Amino acid sequence: MLQKIRGTEDVQAELYDLVTANEISKTIKHPFKNILKKKYRPQLVMAVVIPFFQQSAMVTGAAGLSMTFLSLLIIDKVGRRTIFTIGGVQMFVSQMLVGAVMAGKLGDHGGLSKGYGYLVLILICSYVAGFGLSWGPLGWLIPSEIFPLEIRSAGQSITVAVGFLFTFIVAQTFLEMLCHLKAGTFFFFGGWVGVMTVFVYLFLPETKNVPIETMDRIWKQHWYWRRYVSEEDDTEVNFDTRYLDL
């Protein structure tokens, strides 16, 4: 199957990596206990923070779907963190401008002229496109890449649970916020977009072209997370040596 997918017969090294990873996964016990270890602090933080930020900026729309396809096409060329940053800046500017227009022209009981109405529509489409380019797809892709085998199941479970939790919270509170904060609602969520963009720029290392089995190295090289990640690998791995003949 690998030979068919890759279009070459030279797949033995990749096959060996897959078999080894499979054997390692069978030896893993207590993933939720492992993820609490100090050396996995970066992954645990990302498992909570990324879905929280993603749901704080959650939007839907056809424009977002189109930009998601574009993101999938360029992600391995441009880089994850770069797309996160570009999309975050686009979302932040769009959100703040919508809030400014609403606050300045709409007020509590006013209305928007046709021109400003079109402007708000364009800004919202820009926001949706920025989300579809960055936080929409990458909010799920990045967590799937950064967890080593011994905590992968726990990390993915935490990511999904946090995402569902904050989806519920945002859905239940948004209309109430809109009634009380009015245009300030856009500034509130725009502020979170700014925070999450800065967070990604400072604390998320670039994972482009980094194999999953060596993902732990990027945390050891990061200016902040290296203080938590030990240079020693205390994972005990035992797998059938007959696979070495591959």
Rank of each mutant, 00 (worst) to 15 (best):
R152T: 04
P205Q: 04
F187P: 02
V195S: 11
L133W: 04
F174R: 00
L175Y: 13
V200D: 03
V193M: 14
S153K: 07
S153P: 01
F187V: 12
V193W: 05
F166N: 04
G139L: 01
L141C: 05
I146M: 08
E176H: 11
W192Y: 11
M177T: 15
S134F: 06
R152G: 03
V193D: 01
G136E: 02
W135C: 05
F168C: 09
I169N: 09
L149H: 03
L141F: 10
L165M: 14
G184S: 10
W135N: 09
V170S: 09
S134K: 07
L202R: 13
F147I: 00
G155I: 00
T167G: 12
C179K: 15
V162L: 02
G155C: 01
L165V: 09
Q172M: 13
L204T: 13
G136I: 00
L204V: 14
A183V: 03
S153L: 00
G184H: 08
G184I: 09
T159E: 08
C179Q: 13
E150N: 15
A154G: 11
P143N: 06
I169K: 14
T197L: 09
L165P: 03
E150W: 01
W135D: 01
I158F: 02
G136W: 04
V195G: 07
T159M: 03
G191I: 07
F199S: 04
G139W: 06
F189G: 03
T197I: 02
S153T: 13
V160F: 09
G184F: 11
P137V: 12
E206L: 09
P148V: 02
E176V: 14
F203E: 07
A161G: 08
W135M: 13
A171P: 00
S153A: 15
E176K: 13
F188P: 02
W140A: 14
V162E: 00
S157I: 03
T185P: 08
W140P: 08
K182V: 13
A161Q: 02
G194Y: 12
V162Y: 12
K182H: 14
Q156W: 00
S153Q: 11
T173A: 05
G136R: 09
W192C: 12
L133M: 14
I151W: 10
R152P: 02
I142Q: 05
L138D: 08
L178W: 06
E145A: 07
W192V: 14
I158V: 15
T159H: 13
L165R: 03
S134Q: 05
G163M: 13
I142H: 01
T185Y: 00
G191F: 11
L138N: 06
S157Y: 01
P137R: 07
C179G: 12
V198S: 08
V198I: 15
F199V: 04
L202E: 13
G136F: 00
F168M: 13
F189E: 08
